[in-house]
């Protein structure tokens, strides 16, 4: 690491400083604080109930959620696909690595053999799991009312599911079959909910249940349902990813 400071290559440094000098005036010329908003204006007018708004209101109290799941729902589907590809790729790379290179285990002798992380962590993990699950589900289900939603709550759920088995035996306990079932089912449900809108004659992923009262738990049509699916899918994916990252220490020691 020490040669990191000593041996400075000047060309990349010069390039990045030049890039900075180019970017900074460019961005400073942008209007800060009163930037024009085109799509945002339409969405806000629809939400505020202005007469003659271009788009329809979705009925979600949290406008970011309505953008993520209704106005740009297809974008979120693509994002889920990218996350799926990344998680699957990471799992594939790690799994094939542990299987193919199992013969030269002498290279990995430095990896920790003791997985027991101590009584304190063990008990705390067991006690925290239900609380974390509750918080995660709460965040997912209130995604259309308050800040939060499927992505954030999904991560909390993933960590809650992963924590106890990690504390005990390095994360090997999570059943891969159950996780992939949950993930596949959630992804398929997301698409099916979108297809129902198509069948009703609306564009793909248009919210289609009753909009209800603004600010109620059961409001905004299918948005809470969609966010629940996103939360389950993200949670399952990331739990599997964490398991892959943690499990190999156990195999190789």
């Amino acid at each position: 690491m020490s040669e990191l400071v000593k041996r400075v290559e000047w060309t990349p440094l010069l390039f990045s400083v030049g890039l900075g000098c180019l970017l900074l005036p460019l961005f400073l010329a942008l209007p800060f604080g009163n930037s024009p908003m085109v799509a945002g204006e339409m969405i806000q007018q629809a939400a505020q109930g202005v007469q003659g708004a271009v788009v329809d209101s979705v009925g979600a109290a949290n406008l970011v959620t309505s953008v993520v799941l209704a106005y740009r729902g297809l974008d979120t589907l693509g994002e889920l696909a990218i996350l799926f590809a990344a998680a699957t790729g990471a799992g594939m790379v790690l799994q094939s690595g542990s299987a193919a290179l199992h013969q030269n285990t002498k290279m990995h002798k430095h990896i920790d053999s003791e997985i027991n992380l101590g009584e304190l962590f063990d008990s705390a993990a067991t006690m925290l799991t239900p609380l974390l699950l509750l918080v995660g589900v709460y965040i997912i289900l209130h995604g259309h009312l308050t800040p939060g939603g499927g992505f954030q709550g999904g991560v909390v759920v993933a960590v809650a599911l992963f924590l106890p088995s990690w504390a005990r035996n390095g994360g090997g306990q999570l059943s891969h079959k159950v996780i992939s079932r949950i993930e596949g089912g959630a992804g398929a449900s997301f698409i099916v909910i979108g297809l129902v809108a198509l069948w009703q004659g609306d564009p793909f992923l248009t919210p289609w249940l009753a909009q209800g009262e603004l600010g109620e738990l059961f409001s905004a049509g299918t948005l809470p349902l969609l966010y629940l699916m996103v939360g389950l899918k993200v949670g399952a994916e990331l739990a599997a990813l964490l398991k892959y990252l943690a499990i190999d220490e156990q195999v190789q020691s």
Partner: peptide
């Protein structure tokens, strides 16, 4: 309000 569209994009 602030623009919700970039917020949604950054979130993803």
């Amino acid at each position: 309000m602030v623009d919700p569209v970039p917020q949604a994009m950054v979130l993803t």
